[in-house]
Design a protein around this nucleic acid. Structure first.
Length: 549
RNA sequence: GCGGCUGUAGCUCAGUCGGAUAGAGCGCCAGCCUCCGGAGCUGGAGGCCGCAGGUUCGAUUCCUGCCAGCCGCGCCA
């Protein structure tokens, strides 16, 4: 039981004894200042409001009861307008070490999700070129969210939606085809500006010609088809490799085309029509999005008979619900935010609860070098692709940088900064804390100390030791909040706090140089518990926890 | 024009479902290596929380209106 849970139950009982109900808006949280104790509760303030009583007097009565309620409660003070400031006994914090040891890599996990099926869909980039750094941010956020939700007890799947049905695919085939013609000397006209300009298109064409020099003798339609198939396969192989190099994994790769060919899109449109949510006008089929709060109605099937992306997106989300997901999270680039109202409208039209559907917007990434912006659109730009960035700074540093900001704010990604080993680049600070712990444990082994000796945990009484244990207490709250708020950066900031506290402790107290064996053993157990927590936190971010650096 | 996001220390950013004297790192200044990894630690200076109103015991947090930056508003993909 966490400190906050323990205090809540004790307070609950005290309030009941006084003949009141637990005030709905009451909070229990660590106070800003340490001198106010471990936890502050404002329930006396809230109760006074509801019951019309003097808050300080009420607080005094509750304090009286709390002091007698548990040996873990060391002190209760009434402060300010009626806050209850509670300090826990060292014995309570010391008990965290066996708990971490027992839980191991599950320490910090919870059953918040209670086995509910959750899905996170992310990246989902069109397979028309290599992933760029913006995709990388979405990949880091989505992948980390999936890990966090899983850790919070959700039965979670990570998914990539492949837009393989649109005009872009045709453009891809055409681009490769025209490059092949150029290479074969059968075309001298300038390369069209509405085709994909990247050098990778030329590479694909060259590879195809090397295998089959007669490629360009094919009839145009057949040639373009072949170029499309090969181009998409090549590009997808590249995307999968980039994601693997970035420590990102998807459980399911879902094809848009499959929704069209198996009739799902048509049947979704039919059911929308049947429910009165779709109508014909000007020769097109429209979704009545305005009935669900969107600004305007949206086209599903154009007057030329072709489907919009929106139509298959609705069918896709209907499919997600049909697969039993109770929580759906889409990670989108922020430039798609205008799409949210219509998607929410569609979810409502499908008869699904709004709260089952979340969109996490990932803002633009500004790629910089030495403070200067690198334009990502220029073909000459050396670091326009995710692969280049990973190669330059490493996957760990890149992921941590992406995950130590709110996803919904712009990010300046300075290559030189991310390579640095300073607190501007905190991944090293956190990893260093872990490596340092491992180094001490290795040294303990070399000195013939028994790493499994129980020691005497009650010897851990220094403030720096209790502060570390207090942070361990907070970890599960952090992972749960990160899950329910879809906010991986909570974990990053927690890890920076924990690493800082570890470094402070390390500077203040000797572990292997402690006065006696029992104390050495106790401190080693403390270090191991902290190391385990750092490792678990880094795992949620998809960042490695090195034994040495 | 309408809508969304952002605006907090010189810089990069947390905090914001109302709480106590607003935080961290970097940078700057001053210190700490006979001692387990100095990629570290300690201390200091540095703030009209974009501006102006409102709600209340209390607002960086909620509401309204402005200002600035970015983005989005097609029978595009």
């Amino acid at each position: 039981m966490r400190a906050s849970e323990l205090l809540r139950s004790l307070l609950h009982q005290a309030i009941t004894e006084l003949g009141f109900d637990w005030p709905a808006k009451a909070t229990i949280e660590p106070p800003k200042e340490k001198k106010f104790g471990d936890l502050a509760a404002n329930c006396a303030l809230m109760l006074a409001k509801e019951a019309g009583k003097n808050p300080r007097r009420l607080a005094e009565e509750l304090a009286e009861k709390l002091r007698a309620a548990s040996p873990h409660v060391a002190a209760v003070e009434v402060a300010g307008p009626g806050f209850l400031n509670v300090t826990f006994a060292p014995s309570f914090w010391q008990s965290y070490i066996p708990r971490v040891e027992a839980a191991g890599n599950r320490f910090g996990a919870s059953d918040l999700g209670r086995g509910k099926k959750a899905q996170v869909e992310f990246v989902s980039a069109n397979p028309t070129g290599p992933l760029h750094i913006g995709h990388g941010r979405g990949a880091a956020v989505g992948d980390s969210l999936a890990r966090i939700l899983r850790f919070a007890g959700y039965d979670t799947e990570a998914e990539y939606y492949i837009n393989d049905a649109g005009k872009q695919m045709r453009t891809l085939g055409l681009s490769v085809w025209l490059r092949a013609l150029q290479l074969a000397g059968k075309r001298s006209e300038p390369f069209p500006t509405d085709c994909y300009q990247g050098a990778y298109i030329v590479d694909i064409a060259r590879d195809m010609l090397a295998v089959d020099p007669a490629l360009t003798d094919l009839p145009e339609e057949e040639g373009i088809d072949r170029c499309y198939e090969r181009g998409m396969a090549d590009i997808f192989a590249g995307i999968k490799q980039d994601l693997a190099d970035f420590n990102v994994s998807h459980d399911v790769w879902f094809s848009e085309l499959s929704l069209i060919s198996d009739g799902s899109v048509e049947s979704t449109l039919e059911s929308l029509k049947a429910a009165g949510h779709a109508f014909e006008e000007d020769g097109a089929l429209w979704f009545r999005a305005t009935a669900f709060g969107d600004d305007k109605d949206r086209v599903l099937r154009k007057s030329d008979g072709s489907l919009t992306y929106f139509a298959s997106d609705i069918a896709y989300h209907a499919n997600k619900y049909a697969r039993g997901f109770e929580s759906i999270t889409d990670v989108w680039g922020a430039d798609h935010h205008g799409y949210i109202p219509r998607m929410r409208a569609a979810i409502a039209a499908l008869g699904r609860a709004q709260k089952s559907f979340d969109v996490v917007l990932v803002q633009l990434v500004n790629l910089l070098q030495a403070g200067e912006q690198i334009a990502m659109s220029t073909r000459a730009g050396k670091f326009e692709t995710l692969a280049d960035v990973i190669k330059e700074v490493g996957a760990d540093a890149a992921r941590f940088m992406f995950l130590s900001r709110k996803s919904d704010s712009k990010l300046d990604f300075d290559l030189d900064l991310v390579k640095q080993r300073t607190m501007d680049n905190p991944v090293y600070y956190v990893q260093y804390a872990h490596a340092r712990i491992q180094a001490v444990c290795r040294r303990a082994g070399e000195r013939g100390l028994d790493p499994t000796a129980p020691g005497d945990l009650s010897l851990l009484v220094h403030e720096e030791e209790l502060d570390l244990l207090r942070l361990l207490d907070r970890f599960r709250t952090i992972t749960e909040d990160a899950a329910s708020n879809r906010a991986p950066h909570y974990v990053s900031f927690f890890l920076m706090d924990l690493a800082g506290q570890l470094h402070r402790y390390y500077a203040a107290h000797q572990v292997l140089g402690a006065e006696n064996d029992a104390l050495i053993a106790a401190r080693l157990r403390l270090l191991n518990a902290v190391g385990q927590t750092i490792k678990n936190g880094l795992a949620l971010l998809g960042v490695s926890a090195p034994e040495s650096m």
